[in-house]
Design a protein around this nucleic acid. Structure first.
Lengths: 251, 251
DNA sequence: ACTTGTCAGCTTGTCTGACAAATTGCCCAG
DNA sequence: CTGGGCAATTTGTCAGACAAGCTGACAAGT
Protein backbone atom coordinates (compact mmCIF):
# COMPACT_ATOMS: atom_id res chain seq x y z
CA UNK A 1 0.00 0.00 0.00
CA UNK A 2 2.31 2.80 -1.18
CA UNK A 3 -0.37 5.42 -0.94
CA UNK A 4 0.67 8.28 1.28
CA UNK A 5 -1.98 10.97 1.00
CA UNK A 6 -4.98 8.94 -0.12
CA UNK A 7 -7.60 8.45 2.56
CA UNK A 8 -7.39 5.16 4.33
CA UNK A 9 -10.31 2.81 4.69
CA UNK A 10 -11.03 3.55 8.33
CA UNK A 11 -13.87 5.83 9.25
CA UNK A 12 -11.61 8.82 9.91
CA UNK A 13 -11.48 9.55 6.18
CA UNK A 14 -13.95 12.39 5.98
CA UNK A 15 -11.86 15.37 7.05
CA UNK A 16 -12.36 18.35 4.73
CA UNK A 17 -12.75 20.30 7.96
CA UNK A 18 -10.00 22.20 9.74
CA UNK A 19 -8.73 21.06 13.10
CA UNK A 20 -9.68 18.27 15.42
CA UNK A 21 -12.93 19.89 16.51
CA UNK A 22 -14.01 20.38 12.91
CA UNK A 23 -13.39 16.75 12.06
CA UNK A 24 -15.23 15.55 15.15
CA UNK A 25 -18.14 17.86 14.37
CA UNK A 26 -18.28 16.52 10.81
CA UNK A 27 -18.25 12.92 12.02
CA UNK A 28 -21.03 13.57 14.52
CA UNK A 29 -23.07 15.48 11.93
CA UNK A 30 -22.85 12.66 9.41
CA UNK A 31 -23.68 10.17 12.16
CA UNK A 32 -26.80 12.15 12.95
CA UNK A 33 -27.83 12.43 9.31
CA UNK A 34 -27.15 8.73 8.82
CA UNK A 35 -29.63 7.98 11.57
CA UNK A 36 -27.22 6.72 14.20
CA UNK A 37 -28.88 9.15 16.59
CA UNK A 38 -32.62 9.59 16.20
CA UNK A 39 -34.35 12.91 16.87
CA UNK A 40 -34.83 13.30 20.60
CA UNK A 41 -32.01 10.92 21.45
CA UNK A 42 -29.27 12.00 23.76
CA UNK A 43 -25.86 11.68 22.20
CA UNK A 44 -22.89 10.43 24.24
CA UNK A 45 -21.68 12.52 27.12
CA UNK A 46 -18.62 14.68 26.74
CA UNK A 47 -16.63 12.25 28.87
CA UNK A 48 -17.62 9.36 26.66
CA UNK A 49 -16.72 11.26 23.51
CA UNK A 50 -13.38 12.20 25.07
CA UNK A 51 -12.59 8.54 25.72
CA UNK A 52 -14.03 7.35 22.40
CA UNK A 53 -12.13 9.72 20.13
CA UNK A 54 -9.05 10.32 22.22
CA UNK A 55 -9.29 14.11 22.28
CA UNK A 56 -9.62 16.61 25.07
CA UNK A 57 -12.88 17.87 26.41
CA UNK A 58 -12.28 21.28 24.85
CA UNK A 59 -12.34 19.71 21.39
CA UNK A 60 -15.50 17.81 22.18
CA UNK A 61 -17.19 20.90 23.52
CA UNK A 62 -16.25 22.95 20.47
CA UNK A 63 -17.52 20.23 18.15
CA UNK A 64 -20.84 20.08 19.98
CA UNK A 65 -21.02 23.88 19.95
CA UNK A 66 -20.76 23.75 16.17
CA UNK A 67 -23.54 21.18 15.94
CA UNK A 68 -25.58 23.41 18.20
CA UNK A 69 -24.98 26.42 15.95
CA UNK A 70 -25.93 24.34 12.91
CA UNK A 71 -29.20 23.41 14.57
CA UNK A 72 -28.51 19.71 14.87
CA UNK A 73 -28.43 19.36 18.64
CA UNK A 74 -29.54 21.31 21.68
CA UNK A 75 -27.72 21.09 25.02
CA UNK A 76 -29.23 21.42 28.48
CA UNK A 77 -26.96 21.86 31.46
CA UNK A 78 -27.09 18.81 33.69
CA UNK A 79 -29.08 16.76 31.21
CA UNK A 80 -26.98 16.35 28.08
CA UNK A 81 -27.00 17.09 24.36
CA UNK A 82 -30.10 16.04 22.44
CA UNK A 83 -30.75 15.74 18.73
CA UNK A 84 -33.39 18.27 17.73
CA UNK A 85 -36.62 17.19 16.08
CA UNK A 86 -35.83 18.57 12.61
CA UNK A 87 -32.07 18.60 12.10
CA UNK A 88 -30.59 21.32 9.96
CA UNK A 89 -33.64 23.56 10.01
CA UNK A 90 -32.25 26.35 12.17
CA UNK A 91 -30.57 27.93 9.18
CA UNK A 92 -30.41 27.38 5.46
CA UNK A 93 -27.20 26.31 3.80
CA UNK A 94 -26.38 25.41 0.24
CA UNK A 95 -23.34 23.28 0.89
CA UNK A 96 -23.44 20.82 3.78
CA UNK A 97 -21.19 22.10 6.53
CA UNK A 98 -19.39 18.78 6.80
CA UNK A 99 -18.30 18.61 3.18
CA UNK A 100 -18.13 22.27 2.24
CA UNK A 101 -18.64 21.49 -1.43
CA UNK A 102 -21.63 21.64 -3.74
CA UNK A 103 -22.37 18.40 -5.53
CA UNK A 104 -22.25 19.08 -9.29
CA UNK A 105 -25.38 17.01 -9.76
CA UNK A 106 -27.28 19.51 -7.62
CA UNK A 107 -26.24 22.55 -9.62
CA UNK A 108 -29.34 22.36 -11.80
CA UNK A 109 -31.56 22.45 -8.73
CA UNK A 110 -29.69 25.41 -7.28
CA UNK A 111 -29.91 27.26 -10.57
CA UNK A 112 -33.63 26.60 -10.54
CA UNK A 113 -33.99 27.94 -7.01
CA UNK A 114 -32.09 31.02 -8.04
CA UNK A 115 -34.32 31.39 -11.08
CA UNK A 116 -37.43 31.37 -8.87
CA UNK A 117 -35.96 34.01 -6.57
CA UNK A 118 -34.66 36.23 -9.35
CA UNK A 119 -37.97 36.02 -11.18
CA UNK A 120 -39.97 36.99 -8.11
CA UNK A 121 -37.54 39.75 -7.32
CA UNK A 122 -37.65 41.15 -10.84
CA UNK A 123 -41.44 41.12 -10.74
CA UNK A 124 -41.45 43.14 -7.52
CA UNK A 125 -38.75 45.44 -8.85
CA UNK A 126 -40.89 46.23 -11.90
CA UNK A 127 -43.73 47.19 -9.59
CA UNK A 128 -41.83 49.16 -6.98
CA UNK A 129 -38.74 50.68 -8.57
CA UNK A 130 -38.29 54.39 -7.99
CA UNK A 131 -36.07 56.90 -9.76
CA UNK A 132 -33.05 56.07 -7.64
CA UNK A 133 -33.46 52.37 -8.37
CA UNK A 134 -33.70 53.05 -12.10
CA UNK A 135 -30.58 55.18 -12.00
CA UNK A 136 -28.62 52.42 -10.26
CA UNK A 137 -29.88 49.86 -12.75
CA UNK A 138 -28.92 51.96 -15.76
CA UNK A 139 -25.49 52.74 -14.32
CA UNK A 140 -24.72 49.06 -13.77
CA UNK A 141 -26.04 48.21 -17.22
CA UNK A 142 -23.87 50.88 -18.82
CA UNK A 143 -20.83 49.57 -16.99
CA UNK A 144 -21.52 46.08 -18.31
CA UNK A 145 -21.95 47.48 -21.81
CA UNK A 146 -18.64 49.27 -21.61
CA UNK A 147 -16.94 46.15 -20.28
CA UNK A 148 -18.43 44.16 -23.12
CA UNK A 149 -17.21 46.57 -25.79
CA UNK A 150 -13.76 47.06 -24.33
CA UNK A 151 -13.26 43.41 -23.45
CA UNK A 152 -12.76 44.11 -19.76
CA UNK A 153 -14.08 42.04 -16.90
CA UNK A 154 -17.69 42.92 -16.26
CA UNK A 155 -18.25 40.54 -13.36
CA UNK A 156 -18.42 43.30 -10.74
CA UNK A 157 -20.81 45.31 -12.90
CA UNK A 158 -22.89 42.15 -13.24
CA UNK A 159 -23.00 41.90 -9.46
CA UNK A 160 -24.04 45.54 -9.22
CA UNK A 161 -26.83 45.02 -11.73
CA UNK A 162 -28.36 42.14 -9.84
CA UNK A 163 -27.84 43.95 -6.55
CA UNK A 164 -29.68 46.94 -7.99
CA UNK A 165 -32.61 44.69 -8.88
CA UNK A 166 -32.60 43.36 -5.33
CA UNK A 167 -32.67 46.89 -3.98
CA UNK A 168 -35.46 47.89 -6.35
CA UNK A 169 -37.62 45.03 -5.07
CA UNK A 170 -37.69 46.77 -1.67
CA UNK A 171 -37.66 43.58 0.37
CA UNK A 172 -34.54 43.15 2.51
CA UNK A 173 -35.13 39.45 3.16
CA UNK A 174 -35.60 38.70 -0.52
CA UNK A 175 -32.49 40.73 -1.33
CA UNK A 176 -30.44 39.04 1.37
CA UNK A 177 -31.41 35.60 0.14
CA UNK A 178 -30.73 36.54 -3.47
CA UNK A 179 -27.22 37.77 -2.67
CA UNK A 180 -26.72 34.71 -0.48
CA UNK A 181 -27.51 32.54 -3.48
CA UNK A 182 -25.57 34.70 -5.91
CA UNK A 183 -22.32 34.37 -4.00
CA UNK A 184 -22.29 30.67 -4.81
CA UNK A 185 -22.09 31.56 -8.51
CA UNK A 186 -19.05 33.82 -8.47
CA UNK A 187 -17.13 31.27 -10.54
CA UNK A 188 -20.01 31.14 -12.99
CA UNK A 189 -20.03 34.91 -13.48
CA UNK A 190 -16.27 34.99 -13.82
CA UNK A 191 -16.55 32.46 -16.63
CA UNK A 192 -19.21 34.48 -18.41
CA UNK A 193 -17.04 37.59 -18.48
CA UNK A 194 -13.70 35.88 -18.97
CA UNK A 195 -11.69 36.87 -22.02
CA UNK A 196 -12.08 33.39 -23.41
CA UNK A 197 -15.86 33.71 -23.36
CA UNK A 198 -15.80 36.96 -25.33
CA UNK A 199 -15.31 35.13 -28.59
CA UNK A 200 -18.17 32.67 -28.35
CA UNK A 201 -20.65 35.43 -27.57
CA UNK A 202 -21.44 34.40 -23.99
CA UNK A 203 -21.01 37.88 -22.61
CA UNK A 204 -22.94 39.43 -25.46
CA UNK A 205 -25.80 36.98 -24.96
CA UNK A 206 -25.89 37.70 -21.25
CA UNK A 207 -25.93 41.42 -21.91
CA UNK A 208 -28.83 41.02 -24.33
CA UNK A 209 -30.77 39.23 -21.60
CA UNK A 210 -29.89 42.04 -19.20
CA UNK A 211 -31.23 44.56 -21.68
CA UNK A 212 -34.55 42.73 -21.93
CA UNK A 213 -34.79 42.53 -18.14
CA UNK A 214 -33.92 46.18 -17.67
CA UNK A 215 -36.46 47.27 -20.26
CA UNK A 216 -39.20 45.29 -18.55
CA UNK A 217 -38.40 46.77 -15.16
CA UNK A 218 -38.29 50.28 -16.58
CA UNK A 219 -41.65 49.75 -18.26
CA UNK A 220 -43.17 48.38 -15.08
CA UNK A 221 -44.06 45.15 -16.89
CA UNK A 222 -44.03 42.79 -13.93
CA UNK A 223 -44.75 39.51 -15.68
CA UNK A 224 -42.37 40.21 -18.54
CA UNK A 225 -39.67 41.10 -16.02
CA UNK A 226 -40.24 37.82 -14.21
CA UNK A 227 -39.98 35.86 -17.46
CA UNK A 228 -36.87 37.76 -18.52
CA UNK A 229 -35.15 37.13 -15.19
CA UNK A 230 -35.95 33.44 -15.24
CA UNK A 231 -34.85 33.06 -18.84
CA UNK A 232 -31.64 34.85 -17.95
CA UNK A 233 -30.84 32.46 -15.12
CA UNK A 234 -31.69 29.42 -17.22
CA UNK A 235 -29.62 30.73 -20.13
CA UNK A 236 -26.71 31.26 -17.75
CA UNK A 237 -27.10 27.70 -16.55
CA UNK A 238 -27.15 26.44 -20.13
CA UNK A 239 -24.06 28.49 -20.97
CA UNK A 240 -22.19 26.62 -18.26
CA UNK A 241 -23.33 23.18 -19.24
CA UNK A 242 -25.95 22.75 -16.53
CA UNK A 243 -28.90 21.13 -18.21
CA UNK A 244 -32.25 22.49 -17.16
CA UNK A 245 -34.59 19.80 -15.96
CA UNK A 246 -37.36 18.65 -18.22
CA UNK A 247 -40.77 19.98 -17.37
CA UNK A 248 -42.90 17.20 -18.75
CA UNK A 249 -46.03 16.22 -16.91
CA UNK A 250 -46.09 12.55 -16.03
CA UNK A 251 -49.42 11.17 -15.06
CA UNK B 1 -38.41 56.58 34.94
CA UNK B 2 -40.43 53.82 36.56
CA UNK B 3 -39.67 51.34 33.85
CA UNK B 4 -38.23 48.13 35.23
CA UNK B 5 -37.91 45.74 32.32
CA UNK B 6 -37.07 48.25 29.60
CA UNK B 7 -33.52 47.94 28.32
CA UNK B 8 -31.08 50.23 30.01
CA UNK B 9 -28.74 52.46 28.12
CA UNK B 10 -25.59 50.48 28.78
CA UNK B 11 -24.43 47.99 26.20
CA UNK B 12 -24.98 44.95 28.42
CA UNK B 13 -28.72 44.94 27.82
CA UNK B 14 -29.04 42.40 25.06
CA UNK B 15 -29.26 39.05 26.84
CA UNK B 16 -31.83 36.77 25.18
CA UNK B 17 -28.94 34.29 24.85
CA UNK B 18 -28.20 31.49 27.28
CA UNK B 19 -24.98 31.45 29.21
CA UNK B 20 -21.98 33.70 29.32
CA UNK B 21 -20.61 32.55 25.98
CA UNK B 22 -23.94 33.18 24.30
CA UNK B 23 -24.13 36.71 25.66
CA UNK B 24 -20.57 37.46 24.64
CA UNK B 25 -21.20 36.06 21.17
CA UNK B 26 -24.30 38.24 20.84
CA UNK B 27 -22.39 41.34 21.92
CA UNK B 28 -19.59 40.69 19.48
CA UNK B 29 -22.05 39.94 16.67
CA UNK B 30 -23.92 43.19 17.20
CA UNK B 31 -20.61 45.04 17.42
CA UNK B 32 -19.62 43.62 14.05
CA UNK B 33 -22.96 44.46 12.47
CA UNK B 34 -22.81 47.94 13.96
CA UNK B 35 -19.53 48.50 12.17
CA UNK B 36 -17.23 48.56 15.18
CA UNK B 37 -15.12 45.99 13.34
CA UNK B 38 -14.83 46.46 9.59
CA UNK B 39 -14.55 43.51 7.22
CA UNK B 40 -10.99 42.30 7.21
CA UNK B 41 -10.23 43.78 10.60
CA UNK B 42 -8.78 41.62 13.30
CA UNK B 43 -10.87 41.61 16.42
CA UNK B 44 -9.24 41.67 19.88
CA UNK B 45 -7.15 38.71 20.94
CA UNK B 46 -8.59 36.13 23.27
CA UNK B 47 -6.45 37.50 26.11
CA UNK B 48 -7.77 41.01 25.54
CA UNK B 49 -11.37 39.79 25.47
CA UNK B 50 -10.74 37.83 28.67
CA UNK B 51 -9.54 40.98 30.42
CA UNK B 52 -12.17 43.22 28.85
CA UNK B 53 -15.22 41.12 29.75
CA UNK B 54 -13.96 39.41 32.87
CA UNK B 55 -14.63 35.88 31.70
CA UNK B 56 -12.41 32.89 31.19
CA UNK B 57 -10.70 32.04 27.94
CA UNK B 58 -13.01 29.04 27.45
CA UNK B 59 -15.99 31.39 27.28
CA UNK B 60 -14.22 33.67 24.84
CA UNK B 61 -13.22 30.75 22.64
CA UNK B 62 -16.75 29.36 22.60
CA UNK B 63 -18.16 32.77 21.71
CA UNK B 64 -15.71 33.15 18.85
CA UNK B 65 -16.47 29.60 17.72
CA UNK B 66 -20.10 30.62 17.51
CA UNK B 67 -19.28 33.66 15.40
CA UNK B 68 -17.17 31.41 13.22
CA UNK B 69 -20.05 28.98 12.74
CA UNK B 70 -22.36 31.88 11.90
CA UNK B 71 -19.93 33.03 9.24
CA UNK B 72 -19.01 36.34 10.85
CA UNK B 73 -15.33 35.72 11.55
CA UNK B 74 -12.60 33.38 10.45
CA UNK B 75 -9.72 32.39 12.72
CA UNK B 76 -6.18 31.55 11.72
CA UNK B 77 -3.86 29.93 14.21
CA UNK B 78 -1.07 32.26 15.16
CA UNK B 79 -2.62 35.23 13.40
CA UNK B 80 -5.95 35.97 15.06
CA UNK B 81 -9.66 36.18 14.32
CA UNK B 82 -10.70 38.29 11.33
CA UNK B 83 -14.07 39.60 10.24
CA UNK B 84 -15.02 38.00 6.95
CA UNK B 85 -15.64 40.11 3.86
CA UNK B 86 -19.41 39.63 3.80
CA UNK B 87 -20.70 38.98 7.32
CA UNK B 88 -23.66 36.71 7.68
CA UNK B 89 -23.47 35.32 4.16
CA UNK B 90 -22.27 31.81 5.02
CA UNK B 91 -25.80 30.75 5.85
CA UNK B 92 -29.25 32.25 5.67
CA UNK B 93 -31.26 32.98 8.78
CA UNK B 94 -34.61 34.59 9.29
CA UNK B 95 -34.15 35.78 12.84
CA UNK B 96 -30.80 37.32 13.77
CA UNK B 97 -28.97 34.88 15.98
CA UNK B 98 -28.33 37.52 18.63
CA UNK B 99 -31.96 38.40 19.23
CA UNK B 100 -33.73 35.20 18.29
CA UNK B 101 -36.92 37.05 17.52
CA UNK B 102 -38.55 38.19 14.32
CA UNK B 103 -39.39 41.86 14.23
CA UNK B 104 -43.14 42.22 13.59
CA UNK B 105 -42.45 44.95 11.08
CA UNK B 106 -40.57 42.44 8.95
CA UNK B 107 -43.38 39.91 8.87
CA UNK B 108 -44.80 41.37 5.67
CA UNK B 109 -41.45 40.97 3.94
CA UNK B 110 -41.10 37.39 5.12
CA UNK B 111 -44.62 36.58 3.96
CA UNK B 112 -43.69 38.04 0.59
CA UNK B 113 -40.56 35.93 0.37
CA UNK B 114 -42.61 32.88 1.20
CA UNK B 115 -45.13 33.85 -1.42
CA UNK B 116 -42.43 33.99 -4.08
CA UNK B 117 -41.12 30.57 -3.08
CA UNK B 118 -44.53 28.93 -2.81
CA UNK B 119 -45.56 30.37 -6.17
CA UNK B 120 -42.47 29.11 -7.92
CA UNK B 121 -42.82 25.74 -6.23
CA UNK B 122 -46.47 25.40 -7.20
CA UNK B 123 -45.61 26.28 -10.78
CA UNK B 124 -43.00 23.53 -10.91
CA UNK B 125 -45.31 21.11 -9.15
CA UNK B 126 -47.96 21.69 -11.80
CA UNK B 127 -45.42 20.81 -14.47
CA UNK B 128 -43.77 17.82 -12.84
CA UNK B 129 -46.23 16.13 -10.52
CA UNK B 130 -46.60 12.41 -11.03
CA UNK B 131 -49.30 10.03 -9.83
CA UNK B 132 -47.69 9.54 -6.43
CA UNK B 133 -47.48 13.29 -5.92
CA UNK B 134 -51.14 13.71 -6.86
CA UNK B 135 -52.14 10.98 -4.43
CA UNK B 136 -50.25 12.64 -1.58
CA UNK B 137 -51.79 16.02 -2.44
CA UNK B 138 -55.32 14.62 -2.48
CA UNK B 139 -54.81 12.73 0.76
CA UNK B 140 -53.62 15.83 2.56
CA UNK B 141 -56.44 17.87 1.07
CA UNK B 142 -59.00 15.31 2.20
CA UNK B 143 -57.57 15.35 5.71
CA UNK B 144 -57.90 19.11 5.81
CA UNK B 145 -61.46 18.85 4.55
CA UNK B 146 -62.35 16.35 7.24
CA UNK B 147 -60.72 18.53 9.88
CA UNK B 148 -62.68 21.50 8.62
CA UNK B 149 -66.03 19.67 8.77
CA UNK B 150 -65.43 18.01 12.14
CA UNK B 151 -63.87 21.07 13.72
CA UNK B 152 -60.62 19.35 14.50
CA UNK B 153 -57.16 20.83 14.19
CA UNK B 154 -56.02 20.64 10.59
CA UNK B 155 -52.61 22.22 11.10
CA UNK B 156 -50.71 18.99 10.56
CA UNK B 157 -52.72 18.22 7.42
CA UNK B 158 -51.93 21.75 6.26
CA UNK B 159 -48.25 21.00 6.74
CA UNK B 160 -48.62 17.77 4.81
CA UNK B 161 -50.34 19.57 1.94
CA UNK B 162 -47.58 22.11 1.53
CA UNK B 163 -44.95 19.41 1.98
CA UNK B 164 -46.64 17.41 -0.79
CA UNK B 165 -46.39 20.43 -3.10
CA UNK B 166 -42.71 20.71 -2.23
CA UNK B 167 -42.20 17.05 -3.08
CA UNK B 168 -44.13 17.39 -6.33
CA UNK B 169 -41.83 20.22 -7.43
CA UNK B 170 -38.96 17.70 -7.48
CA UNK B 171 -36.32 20.12 -6.33
CA UNK B 172 -34.81 19.24 -2.95
CA UNK B 173 -33.23 22.66 -2.43
CA UNK B 174 -36.47 24.46 -3.16
CA UNK B 175 -38.31 22.06 -0.85
CA UNK B 176 -35.77 22.46 1.92
CA UNK B 177 -35.98 26.22 1.76
CA UNK B 178 -39.77 26.16 1.66
CA UNK B 179 -39.97 23.99 4.77
CA UNK B 180 -37.30 26.17 6.38
CA UNK B 181 -39.51 29.18 5.80
CA UNK B 182 -42.71 27.37 6.73
CA UNK B 183 -41.48 26.43 10.18
CA UNK B 184 -41.42 30.11 11.08
CA UNK B 185 -45.17 30.22 10.52
CA UNK B 186 -46.27 27.40 12.81
CA UNK B 187 -48.05 29.91 15.05
CA UNK B 188 -49.80 31.34 12.01
CA UNK B 189 -51.10 27.95 10.91
CA UNK B 190 -52.20 27.10 14.42
CA UNK B 191 -54.24 30.29 14.47
CA UNK B 192 -55.87 29.48 11.14
CA UNK B 193 -57.07 26.10 12.34
CA UNK B 194 -57.82 27.05 15.93
CA UNK B 195 -61.35 26.47 17.14
CA UNK B 196 -61.82 30.20 17.54
CA UNK B 197 -61.08 30.73 13.84
CA UNK B 198 -63.70 28.23 12.77
CA UNK B 199 -66.49 30.70 13.29
CA UNK B 200 -65.13 33.59 11.27
CA UNK B 201 -64.51 31.35 8.28
CA UNK B 202 -60.74 31.56 8.29
CA UNK B 203 -60.27 27.83 7.95
CA UNK B 204 -62.96 27.59 5.29
CA UNK B 205 -61.36 30.40 3.30
CA UNK B 206 -57.96 28.75 3.53
CA UNK B 207 -59.43 25.46 2.39
CA UNK B 208 -61.06 27.14 -0.60
CA UNK B 209 -57.67 28.52 -1.58
CA UNK B 210 -56.19 25.06 -1.16
CA UNK B 211 -58.85 23.67 -3.49
CA UNK B 212 -58.02 26.20 -6.18
CA UNK B 213 -54.30 25.43 -5.84
CA UNK B 214 -54.86 21.68 -5.93
CA UNK B 215 -57.08 21.95 -9.01
CA UNK B 216 -54.45 23.97 -10.85
CA UNK B 217 -51.70 21.50 -10.02
CA UNK B 218 -53.87 18.57 -11.07
CA UNK B 219 -54.70 20.29 -14.35
CA UNK B 220 -51.05 21.05 -14.96
CA UNK B 221 -51.86 24.75 -15.20
CA UNK B 222 -48.52 26.16 -14.14
CA UNK B 223 -49.29 29.86 -14.17
CA UNK B 224 -52.65 29.43 -12.49
CA UNK B 225 -50.98 27.31 -9.80
CA UNK B 226 -48.41 30.03 -9.21
CA UNK B 227 -51.11 32.67 -8.89
CA UNK B 228 -53.18 30.47 -6.58
CA UNK B 229 -50.20 29.78 -4.31
CA UNK B 230 -49.26 33.42 -4.09
CA UNK B 231 -52.82 34.50 -3.43
CA UNK B 232 -53.02 31.85 -0.71
CA UNK B 233 -49.94 33.15 1.06
CA UNK B 234 -51.10 36.74 0.78
CA UNK B 235 -54.57 35.83 2.03
CA UNK B 236 -53.01 34.04 4.97
CA UNK B 237 -50.98 37.13 5.73
CA UNK B 238 -54.09 39.28 5.54
CA UNK B 239 -55.98 36.89 7.84
CA UNK B 240 -53.34 37.49 10.49
CA UNK B 241 -53.26 41.21 10.18
CA UNK B 242 -50.09 41.49 8.16
CA UNK B 243 -50.75 44.11 5.55
CA UNK B 244 -49.35 43.34 2.13
CA UNK B 245 -47.15 46.09 0.81
CA UNK B 246 -48.47 48.40 -1.83
CA UNK B 247 -47.26 47.70 -5.33
CA UNK B 248 -47.55 51.12 -6.82
CA UNK B 249 -44.92 52.27 -9.25
CA UNK B 250 -43.23 55.47 -8.17
CA UNK B 251 -41.33 57.26 -10.83
C1' DA C 1 -50.54 2.93 48.51
C1' DC C 2 -49.43 7.47 47.31
C1' DT C 3 -47.16 11.75 47.78
C1' DT C 4 -43.36 14.55 49.07
C1' DG C 5 -38.77 15.94 50.45
C1' DT C 6 -34.03 14.95 50.36
C1' DC C 7 -29.98 13.49 48.43
C1' DA C 8 -26.32 11.38 45.75
C1' DG C 9 -24.62 10.83 41.19
C1' DC C 10 -24.16 12.45 36.69
C1' DT C 11 -23.75 16.05 33.00
C1' DT C 12 -22.92 20.46 31.17
C1' DG C 13 -20.94 25.27 32.08
C1' DT C 14 -17.04 27.80 33.62
C1' DC C 15 -12.45 28.66 35.53
C1' DT C 16 -7.38 28.09 35.70
C1' DG C 17 -2.87 26.87 34.09
C1' DA C 18 0.03 24.93 30.81
C1' DC C 19 2.09 23.43 26.41
C1' DA C 20 2.03 22.82 21.16
C1' DA C 21 1.64 24.85 16.58
C1' DA C 22 1.47 28.58 13.48
C1' DT C 23 2.06 33.34 12.19
C1' DT C 24 4.23 37.82 12.30
C1' DG C 25 7.63 41.30 12.89
C1' DC C 26 12.20 42.41 13.97
C1' DC C 27 17.07 41.98 14.32
C1' DC C 28 21.18 40.96 12.37
C1' DA C 29 24.57 38.91 9.38
C1' DG C 30 26.04 39.00 4.76
C1' DC D 1 19.58 46.31 0.72
C1' DT D 2 18.46 41.49 1.16
C1' DG D 3 17.86 37.33 3.27
C1' DG D 4 17.65 33.99 7.15
C1' DG D 5 16.57 33.13 11.55
C1' DC D 6 14.92 34.12 16.02
C1' DA D 7 11.58 35.71 19.48
C1' DA D 8 7.15 37.41 20.66
C1' DT D 9 2.42 36.86 19.84
C1' DT D 10 -1.74 34.25 19.04
C1' DT D 11 -4.75 30.45 18.35
C1' DG D 12 -5.30 25.27 19.15
C1' DT D 13 -5.21 21.60 22.41
C1' DC D 14 -4.66 19.35 26.79
C1' DA D 15 -5.50 18.48 31.83
C1' DG D 16 -7.72 19.15 36.25
C1' DA D 17 -11.01 21.35 39.13
C1' DC D 18 -15.29 23.44 40.82
C1' DA D 19 -20.10 25.35 40.11
C1' DA D 20 -24.86 24.85 38.33
C1' DG D 21 -28.54 22.09 37.03
C1' DC D 22 -30.91 17.70 36.06
C1' DT D 23 -32.38 12.82 37.08
C1' DG D 24 -33.61 8.98 39.54
C1' DA D 25 -33.80 6.54 43.81
C1' DC D 26 -34.80 6.37 48.50
C1' DA D 27 -36.82 7.46 52.84
C1' DA D 28 -40.25 9.84 55.51
C1' DG D 29 -44.78 11.23 56.10
C1' DT D 30 -49.67 11.18 55.21
Amino acid sequence: MPSTTAPTNDDSALPRATGLSGMLAARLATAIRAGAFRPGDRLPTEKQLVEQYGVSRAVVREAIARLKADGFVDTRQGAGAFVVAKPGMANFRIAPSDTGRIAPADLAHIFELRGVIEAGMAELAAKRRNVADLAALETAFARMQQALESGEDGASADDSFHAAIATAAHNPYLAQFATFLAQHFSATRALTWAASARDDGSAAAAQAEHARLLAAIEAGAAEEAARAARDHIFAAAARHGVAAKENSVKD
